[in-house]
Amino acid sequence: MKKVFSFLTMLMVTFVAMAQTKEKYDFVVAQDGSGDFKTVQEAINAVPDYRKAGETRILIRKGVYKEKVIVPESKQNVTLIGEDEYETVLTYDDYASKPNIFGENKGTSGSSSFYVYGPDFHAENITFSNTAGPVGQAVAMFVSGNRAIFVNCRFKGFQDTLYTYGKRSKQYYKNCYIEGTVDFIFGASTCFFDNCEIRSLGRGYLTAASTLQDVEYGYVMYQCRLTAADKVEKVMLGRPWRPYAKTVFIDCLMDTHIAPEGWHNWGVEKEKTAFYGETGSHNYANDPIDVSKRVTWTRKINPLDYTIDKVLSDPDKPDWYLNI
């Protein structure tokens, strides 16, 4: 009798938990079939096109989901919540020189594991990865949509890990982890990286911004931690992919793996147009970094000019980045 009672109690608890989950989320993705869908793409496809009444919340259960995922422009205000940032993994292994079905190279953009085109996308507690390895450009995340938010997410790759593609897109990364070697945070978007770990797996460049000339802000690294794998050295803070690239580091911690000169010009003519600077840089002993050997063409910056309100303000949704 006790066994029957125990079984019924467990069953009731399970039903209650499932009911609570359904109240909190619109869809659940689970590989074992216990959710609404087995793949992430199926869940995204089920979101009504151009839904304006509210966000669509999707829970992704633990597991490694190997699939190329696209959030189209018509899927607006989509929120993905991972059950665990270390064990909810969305991954693929394409790379730029890999041929497509026509024998043509996929290219940098075509290599991405995950694409965001829809506005007001939000992700939490998810690892986005590209496992192609050291084969050239291999993007883990491609973000074109405006007002994208990532919280407690991890971006894992080797070269060109995070592609902030949208030329006038604004993006917010909070408490995230981003790893790679060469240009592994790159693109034209305006991005605020808040308390993120930026980890170098090899010698290279942390950033390669391609900011438009008439866009006020590019990349803002705020209170981030720059770390590196063993024996990695001579890493640059960034280089300008396009002439008017903008990147600043504010109150960041960095180790000796960052080269004393700090920045690369990627062509001497870009020294006149690129906007690179830092303030409040410290090492892990909390001593100020000696910036006397930084390249002479870096700019002096005032941190008050780079508050999150100024960088991410949007005329259509002024406080969108507070929705976390």
Score class of each variant (00 low, 15 high):
201 L>T: 02
283 N>D: 15
279 T>A: 01
163 Y>M: 10
284 Y>T: 05
50 Y>T: 00
166 G>W: 09
87 E>G: 02
245 A>S: 13
135 V>M: 07
302 N>D: 15
18 M>D: 05
3 K>M: 01
320 W>N: 05
216 E>Y: 02
75 K>W: 01
137 Q>A: 15
5 F>I: 15
316 D>G: 00
56 T>C: 09
145 G>L: 09
188 A>V: 00
280 G>M: 14
96 A>C: 02
66 K>D: 13
133 G>D: 03
158 F>K: 08
151 V>N: 13
46 A>G: 04
59 L>G: 03
243 P>S: 12
128 F>S: 12
288 P>M: 12
101 I>Y: 02
69 V>H: 07
129 S>T: 03
302 N>Q: 07
1 M>I: 04
99 P>R: 11
100 N>F: 00
272 K>F: 09
71 V>L: 12
324 I>W: 01
162 L>W: 13
296 T>P: 03
213 Q>K: 15
31 Q>T: 10
115 Y>H: 04
32 D>R: 12
206 L>M: 09
205 Y>S: 05
39 T>G: 02
155 F>V: 11
178 I>M: 15
116 V>R: 13
72 P>N: 08
285 A>K: 14
78 V>Y: 01
260 P>H: 01
69 V>P: 06
111 S>H: 11
290 D>S: 05
151 V>G: 00
306 Y>G: 02
245 A>Y: 01
246 K>C: 05
7 F>T: 08
59 L>W: 04
289 I>F: 07
308 I>E: 04
41 Q>W: 00
192 F>T: 02
130 N>Y: 09
51 R>K: 14
228 A>L: 00
62 K>P: 00
4 V>G: 01
144 S>W: 06
65 Y>K: 06
19 A>Y: 03
43 A>S: 10
33 G>E: 11
243 P>V: 02
230 D>E: 15
247 T>Y: 02
241 W>D: 15
174 K>T: 12
247 T>W: 02
157 G>C: 06
276 Y>W: 08
120 D>K: 12
311 V>T: 07
79 T>D: 02
220 V>W: 04
324 I>T: 10
20 Q>A: 06
222 Y>Q: 06
283 N>L: 07
112 S>K: 14
92 Y>H: 12
82 G>H: 01
247 T>A: 15
287 D>T: 10
83 E>D: 14
178 I>F: 13
123 A>F: 00
310 K>S: 06
14 T>F: 13
108 T>N: 11
215 V>I: 12
258 I>M: 08
99 P>E: 11
115 Y>I: 05
107 G>N: 12
241 W>L: 07
132 A>M: 06
92 Y>D: 14
186 F>T: 03
118 G>V: 10
234 K>R: 11
25 Y>H: 14
105 N>M: 07
214 D>N: 14
267 G>C: 07
274 A>R: 04
151 V>Y: 12
176 C>T: 15
291 V>F: 01
182 V>M: 05
67 E>I: 02
64 V>A: 03
156 K>V: 15
49 D>Y: 03
179 E>F: 05
290 D>H: 06
105 N>R: 11
121 F>Y: 14
290 D>Q: 00
